[in-house]
Design a protein around this nucleic acid. Structure first.
Lengths: 153, 153
DNA sequence: TTACTAAATTAGAATAATTATAAAATGATT
DNA sequence: AATCATTTTATAATTATTCTAATTTAGTAA
């Protein structure tokens, strides 16, 4: 955890930015909630617990900065809010998401799975892929299991 | 074109909605700009040319309705706006997009390409896929060709 | 230390997209 | 023609995000 912060600090310095206390608090919140998909507002409220004097605009600016540096990814699941998701360290590409249309849960897929598809896109459309966004909508394993149990009875 | 409108009319009736003049004008705009990715505001301005008395809220409501009926899909490319995209007739799944990070162009891929990936997701994550969103970010064929020409000189 | 400078932050205002509300219009049905 | 549900309009309200001006902070050089 601390080493992860250190590495992010170095990334910032490398782009000649500082890891200010506000930025550090924001990054810590993201690390501590890595499996969630927080909106800017969510992050703001959590950061306030550590650093009550922080302003919402600062959170927005920090998240934007982290997005630029590819430390986090900004995603949008169709509700009106942008959500922010830490990238796996060293990951070249953004991971995928499974959104459950029954319970609303969002699971992550770290595997890439798209190598073949990207090869086709590059060749057939002469499109140089730099990144991707892939989200599946459907029924998650929890709901599927629940249905299976209900049927048993 | 007319037959396409007729079929949409039937879809609406099937869900006990009417194809009011405002709704028809909105659908026509979507059909006439099928290759674009219009925002609600864009649609509003175009519909106003046909039906100047229409209100913005009606356009929003109509687009929401068409989204529910899976006639259009609502997408979000990361700028603050939702965009609306007609589904291919009979398409079970949403088509994919290629967003150029240089010129901003958005191209569509109608082929599915994801059959294999979906099979893996269903099996490995026990996730029942109902739909998907796939967008590639990168450099489009136009920009790639331009670069190739520039290098020649 | 002190002064200077650039970068960062704050609070609050401003903007932009979207949704909600109440009144009016439409259209079908009895 | 009266009634009822649906739809639309115009406008207000809400929400997310960005901008602005004033202030603070950190780092550097005198």
């Amino acid at each position: 955890m601390e080493s992860r912060i250190d590495r992010i600090k170095k990334q910032l310095h490398g782009a000649s930015y500082k890891l200010t206390p506000q930025r550090e608090a924001t990054v810590r919140v993201l690390l501590e909630n890595e499996e969630d998909h927080l909106s800017a507002e969510d992050v703001y409220l959590l950061v306030k617990e550590k650093a009550p004097e922080i302003g919402l605009a600062t959170v927005y600016r920090t998240l934007e900065l982290l997005t630029e540096l590819k430390i986090v990814d900004k995603i949008n699941f169709g509700d009106g809010v942008s959500r922010y998701d830490l990238r796996q360290e060293g990951a070249a590409h953004f991971h995928h998401h499974l959104v459950c249309i029954e319970c609303g849960a969002v699971d992550e897929i770290q595997e890439d799975l798209l190598d073949d598809v990207e090869a086709v896109v590059e060749k057939r459309w002469n499109f140089t892929v730099k990144d991707h966004r892939l989200t599946f909508h459907g029924i998650c394993w929890r709901c599927n299991e629940r249905h299976a149990n209900e049927d048993e009875q």
